[in-house]
């Protein structure tokens, strides 16, 4: 559905993108991940025809964005980083305006009603956008992107500055949209992409450093044998008992204390499920196990690791 090839963008002498390439298939939800200033917004702005690239090609639904911008733009719904809202308009007026400039052919009343329903803004449709809360504004921004029912929807950091409840709502909304649309979601919040996207494309300093299925990235990292445990018992003795338990390769108090319980970080041998022996050992000594928390590596760690590798590579390349 989307083919991006060798995208380069120069701002003066500074290069924002250095040969970005990736594809997005129909019906995929792809997370576009990177720290601030990595080139996420630049890529998305080029993809939507707001900026041009210095070189490289972008095709949406087989249509070149630079050669046939109007045709390509019809296929894309875009929510920029800051939702493009006119504060002196009412919500319904605004959506009608968007409907007109996108030259929609759908049944206007029904279509807009549906969009307002999915984004849950029906109750504010007669209010001025300038008077709405941030969460509502964001939803109006999403509604705007949905007008005309474009097959491709692009969200640039849609949950920034929202409260946790709103974030969950918007993520659910995006997940639902993903059932019928191709979605690109940019974010620097990794758990967001983890919870919504099928695939992750990671960008750093204008280059793609990873492009994989979300599961495979999480699985590679997720094969954990590390736990934080909380035990009610004397710290030093528990520590030495843990050390002597078969299967444990590493144990260390974290220094946290909760009443008469102490926390420890333990690591078992690969392929050993340490939880049962641990439980029996502690029960035998009469030290109740108060907590057991697996330390799965999340996308954050993966991200940091990839970035580190990337930096090492570029350093050694320079040397």
């Amino acid at each position: 559905m989307i083919e991006i090839q060798n995208l380069v963008k120069l701002y003066g002498n500074k290069s924002a993108l250095e040969g970005v390439s990736f594809n997005v298939g129909e019906g995929e939800i792809v997370g576009f991940l990177g720290p601030n200033g990595a080139g996420k917004s630049t890529t998305l702005n080029i993809l939507t025809g707001y900026l041009s690239s210095s070189s490289g090609t972008v095709k949406v639904g087989g249509i070149d964005v630079f050669e046939y911008p109007d045709e390509a733009k019809k296929l894309i719904g875009f929510l920029p980083e800051q939702p493009p809202l006119y504060h002196d308009m009412k919500v319904s007026e605004y959506l009608n305006f968007v409907y007109e400039i996108k030259r929609c052919k759908l049944n206007r009343k029904k279509h807009l009603e549906e969009i307002m329903q999915t984004t849950k803004i029906l109750d504010v449709k007669d209010r001025l956008i300038g008077n709405l809360s941030k969460g509502y504004r964001q939803r109006v921004g999403i509604a705007q992107a949905l007008v005309g029912n474009p097959p491709v929807i692009i969200f640039d950091e849609p949950t920034v500055a929202l409260d946790p409840k709103q974030i969950i709502e918007i993520r659910n909304l995006i997940r639902n949209l993903g059932k019928t649309h191709t979605v690109i979601l940019s974010s620097h919040i990794l758990s967001e992409i983890q919870s919504v996207c099928d695939r992750v494309v990671i960008i750093n300093e204008g280059r793609i450093i990873a492009d994989e299925k979300t599961e495979s990235i999480t699985r590679v990292a997720g094969d954990t044998n590390e736990y934080i445990i909380k035990v009610a018992g004397p710290q030093r003795e528990v520590q030495s008992a843990l050390r002597s338990l078969r299967g444990i390769v590493f144990s260390e108090p974290t220094g946290e204390r909760d009443g008469d319980s102490y926390c420890f970080r333990i690591k078992s041998e690969t392929g050993v499920d340490i939880r049962k022996p641990l439980f029996y050992m502690l029960a035998e000594k009469n030290w109740p196990l108060m907590g057991l928390e697996p330390q799965g590596m999340n996308l954050e760690d993966v991200f940091v690791r990839i970035m580190d590798n990337d930096m090492k590579k570029s350093k050694s390349a320079k040397a």
Binding site: T48, E71, K73, P84, Y86, V98, R103, Q144
Partner: peptide, 14 residues
Amino acid sequence: RQKTEQLLMTAPLP
């Protein structure tokens, strides 16, 4: 200033 030009520029309109 209001960043609304992005809407106009990404609309299918010359």
